[in-house]
Simulated scan of single mutants.
Amino acid sequence: MPMAAEDIEGLIRQSIPDAQVQITDLAGDGDHYAARVVAESFRGISRVERTRRVYAALGGRMGGELHALQLTTDVPAGA
């Protein structure tokens, strides 16, 4: 069963409280999403570690409930 964008956003925010999360349904099917996650807590850590933290927030749903996620992570600008 597909995941709702709101569920993905909620899981990420629960695990990364300072995150600004933008979810886009790429195919309109609830299975293929893009996520942009911006968090101050990402500052100073590698992109690989940022990705790991987001995937950990999803609790193993990748490849199951959530088929595909195009992920972009960043830190807030100007800080």
Rank of each mutant, 00 (worst) to 15 (best):
D29M: 11
A4Q: 14
G60V: 07
T73Y: 01
Q22C: 02
G64D: 11
E6W: 06
A4G: 12
R53L: 12
R36F: 00
D7E: 15
L11I: 02
A5C: 08
L58W: 06
D74M: 00
Y55F: 12
M1N: 14
I8P: 06
G10Q: 14
A35H: 02
E65A: 15
E6I: 13
V37I: 13
V38Q: 02
G60K: 06
M62P: 00
V48K: 00
P17S: 09
Q22E: 15
V75E: 04
F42V: 01
E40G: 11
V21D: 08
M1I: 09
D31N: 14
M62N: 05
A4E: 15
I23H: 07
A56N: 11
H32N: 15
H32I: 04
E49L: 13
I12D: 07
T51F: 01
R43T: 10
G59C: 04
I12M: 09
A4T: 14
R53V: 03
G60Q: 08
A5Q: 13
Y55R: 12
I16D: 03
E49G: 00
G78Y: 02
E40H: 04
E6H: 12
V37G: 08
V54L: 03
T24I: 13
M1A: 15
M1H: 13
I8G: 07
S41F: 02
R47C: 04
G10M: 08
A19P: 03
V37C: 07
L69Q: 03
I16H: 02
M1V: 13
A57K: 06
H67W: 05
A68L: 08
G44A: 03
T51P: 00
A5H: 11
R61T: 09
D7R: 13
D18L: 11
T51D: 08
V21I: 11
T73M: 05
A5S: 15
A19G: 08
S46V: 01
D25C: 06
G30K: 12
R13N: 06
D29I: 07
P2R: 14
Q70K: 12
A4H: 13
T24N: 13
A27R: 14
T24C: 07
G60F: 02
R61C: 04
A35C: 03
H67Q: 14
M3K: 15
R13L: 12
A35G: 05
G10S: 15
D74T: 00
Q14Y: 01
I16G: 04
A19L: 03
A79L: 07
S15H: 11
I45K: 04
D29A: 10
D7G: 01
M3E: 10
A34C: 09
L11H: 09
D18P: 10
S15V: 00
L58A: 06
A77Y: 00
I16L: 11
A79H: 07
P17H: 06
G78N: 11
G64S: 12
M62S: 03
T72D: 06
A27M: 14
I45Y: 03
G28R: 10
L11C: 09
A5D: 14
E40L: 10
D18W: 05
P2I: 10
A5T: 04
Q20G: 05
A34M: 12
A5N: 08
L58M: 10
I45A: 01
